[in-house]
Structure formats: C-alpha cells, structure tokens
Amino acid sequence: MSMNNNVTEFIFWGLSQNSEVEEVCFVMFSFFYTVSLLGNLLIMLTVYAGNLYKSPMYFFLNYLSFVDICYSSVTAPKMLVDLLAKSKTISYVGCMLQLFGTHFFGCTEIFLLNVMAYDRYVAICKPLYYVSIIDRDRCNKMLLGTWVVGFLHSLIQVALVVQLPFCGPNEIDHYFCDVHPVLKLACTDTFVVGVVVTANSGTIALGSFVILLTSYTIILVSLRKQSAEGRHKALSTCGSHIAGVIIFFGPCTFMYMRPDATFSEDKMVAVFYTVISPMLNPLIYTLRNAEVKNAMKKMCRKVFWKANDK
C-alpha cells in the first residue's frame, strides 16, 4: 500500500444542510451540553463534599461523571461551533485526536458501567462479603483497568486509520470523526480494516451490553429473597442503571456491530451516546437515590449559609 496522503483537513456535512434546522439544533444541543456539564459537575462536587467517595458505589459514580464530561466535550463543542459556521472543517491531526478521544472515553465508560454493575451485584447478591470483596484497593485496580482498556482500544482504532492513504474527497457525512465515515474516504480497499473495527468495537459494545443485561437480570431475580424495603431500594438503583445502559448501548451496538457501512440515520443515532446519554446519566444515577439527594441538599445549605454570612 503506497502512502499517498494529500488530505490535510476534512469537511463535515454536519447534522443538517438547512440553516434554520441548524439554528434549532444549536439551541437544543447547547442546552443538552450545558445540562451535561453542570449535572456531572454537581455529582462530583456532591460526592466529595458529602464524603460519599468512601463508598465504592459513589467512588465509581464520581469517575463516571468525570468520564461523561470528557466524553461529551470531545464532540459537542466542535458540533456546536459547526452548527453556526459556514465552513465545517477539521484538520487531519484534529480528526485523529477526536477519533482517539471518542473511543478512549467511550470505551472507558463502557467498562466503568460494567464495574458498577459488578459492584451492585456483589452488594445485593453477596452483602455479607461486600466489604471484603469490594475494598478500596480492588476499586482502584478496577478503575485503572477501565482506563487501560479504553486506551488500548482507542489506540487500535487510530492505528488502523492513520496507516490508510487519503487523497480526496475529504468530505465526511457526519458531525465528528468516527471510524466508519472516515474509512469511506480512504483511497484503498478498507474491507479488512472494517472487519477488524467491527470485531473490536462491535464485540466490546455488544458483549458488554449482554453482560450488563445478564448481570442485572440475575440481580432482579435474586431480589425475591430480599425484604420489601431491600427490594424497593435495590429496584430503584438497578432500574435506573438498566435505563442508562439501554440508552447508551442500544445506539452503540447499532453503530458498531455491523459491516463497514454508513447510513443517513447514523448521525442522529450517534447523538444518543455522545450527547444525550452523558446528559441523562446525572439524572439516571441520582434521581431516585436518597443519599445523593440529601448530600446535595446539605451542600446547597452550606453554600447558602456562607453566602449569607458574607
């Protein structure tokens, strides 16, 4: 394969070519991104201010919020700027960095959700052994593992793309750089690369989705042995987690568990896991969590009292 790379920048088609639709999308997605940032920051502040990070569940929730902020920030700011710009361009290097960041934080979040499901499984199904199984040392190791796996996954994705020649055209029918849309622009046969990408990303997305649904099913079945109060508390936690898993993994599986092909619906499907899911996670993981809500109220009271003292 001769490396003939004449492309120094790519041009996005964006979410729409209609200026009025783009203005509506700008207002809507600006709101979504702002809520995502503020909501996840609020969770992180609450976890630290309320000393909740000592609990493994909130320790992982804190890092999920951090990953969500990073994940949405890889694509959302550029998308918002492009919605108001006439020329939606990104440099070749910027495109590769965006591709890396999307898969790095996306894969890290996938495995972090698996770790959180494991934490809930042990807490509900093996409560007597919870403290000994999920100790701080193991929490740190599992967290490190999510970052390492995310890095390796994204490194493979970028390595597959950067060795391809691009000689034009340079227009991407998407609002950010992802593997399948970029592969369409390569000046060579990308069948093998597409198969590897599908095997890599698709297996992670679908495999994790199945594992998560299976683990939560086991948890729900085991609730029959719990008391009414324990059942209600566990259902509140697991029910919201399952909703978050479906919203995130459903679109991801559709995008990556298929041959190297792109569809016109891909952009709207991608919005769910790049913008909507990071925004909903603060609500999903705290809306029915009394401990987090109480910690938020205490933090707000402290801030209010300090403001009045001044």
Rank of each mutant, 00 (worst) to 15 (best):
233 K>I: 14
178 D>A: 15
225 K>H: 15
184 K>N: 01
209 F>Q: 01
227 S>M: 08
180 H>I: 03
265 E>M: 14
167 C>E: 15
151 F>C: 10
195 V>T: 07
254 F>K: 10
288 R>T: 08
174 H>T: 03
194 G>I: 02
183 L>S: 01
178 D>H: 10
237 T>H: 05
184 K>Y: 04
150 G>R: 00
229 E>G: 07
257 M>N: 10
276 I>G: 04
286 T>V: 11
289 N>D: 08
250 G>A: 14
247 I>N: 01
267 K>M: 10
216 Y>W: 09
236 S>M: 09
200 N>L: 15
165 P>F: 08
209 F>N: 01
159 A>G: 15
202 G>T: 10
222 S>Q: 11
212 L>A: 03
262 T>H: 07
285 Y>W: 11
265 E>R: 11
262 T>F: 11
196 V>Q: 03
227 S>H: 08
246 I>Q: 08
215 S>I: 04
246 I>W: 09
186 A>S: 05
204 I>W: 00
234 A>Y: 05
205 A>V: 06
157 Q>L: 11
257 M>W: 15
283 L>P: 05
270 A>T: 13
226 Q>M: 09
266 D>Y: 12
160 L>M: 06
240 S>D: 08
288 R>S: 03
200 N>W: 12
178 D>W: 05
268 M>I: 07
250 G>K: 10
149 V>T: 00
167 C>K: 01
271 V>H: 03
216 Y>P: 05
207 G>T: 06
152 L>Q: 04
215 S>Q: 05
153 H>T: 07
201 S>K: 03
238 C>Q: 05
158 V>I: 10
156 I>W: 12
161 V>I: 15
199 A>H: 13
211 I>K: 05
279 M>T: 14
188 T>W: 04
212 L>F: 08
227 S>G: 14
285 Y>T: 08
256 Y>I: 07
211 I>E: 04
245 V>G: 02
176 F>E: 00
248 F>I: 06
163 Q>T: 15
196 V>N: 02
288 R>W: 13
235 L>P: 06
195 V>H: 09
221 V>A: 06
201 S>C: 12
276 I>P: 00
258 R>C: 14
158 V>Y: 15
159 A>C: 14
253 T>A: 12
284 I>L: 07
192 V>G: 03
190 T>W: 07
203 T>P: 11
220 L>F: 12
238 C>R: 01
263 F>T: 12
273 Y>M: 12
290 A>V: 13
278 P>S: 03
268 M>L: 09
157 Q>E: 07
233 K>H: 14
267 K>N: 13
190 T>I: 09
201 S>D: 06
247 I>E: 01
192 V>Y: 07
150 G>Q: 00
198 T>P: 07
187 C>H: 06
176 F>G: 00
245 V>N: 00
227 S>C: 12
266 D>C: 12
232 H>P: 02
187 C>P: 12
226 Q>N: 10
241 H>I: 11
213 L>S: 07
218 I>D: 10
258 R>S: 08
213 L>F: 08
191 F>W: 11
149 V>D: 00
173 D>V: 15
188 T>A: 02
159 A>E: 06
219 I>W: 07
233 K>P: 06
203 T>N: 10
244 G>N: 14
220 L>N: 04
222 S>H: 11
242 I>N: 00
282 P>L: 06
241 H>R: 03
193 V>P: 07
241 H>G: 06
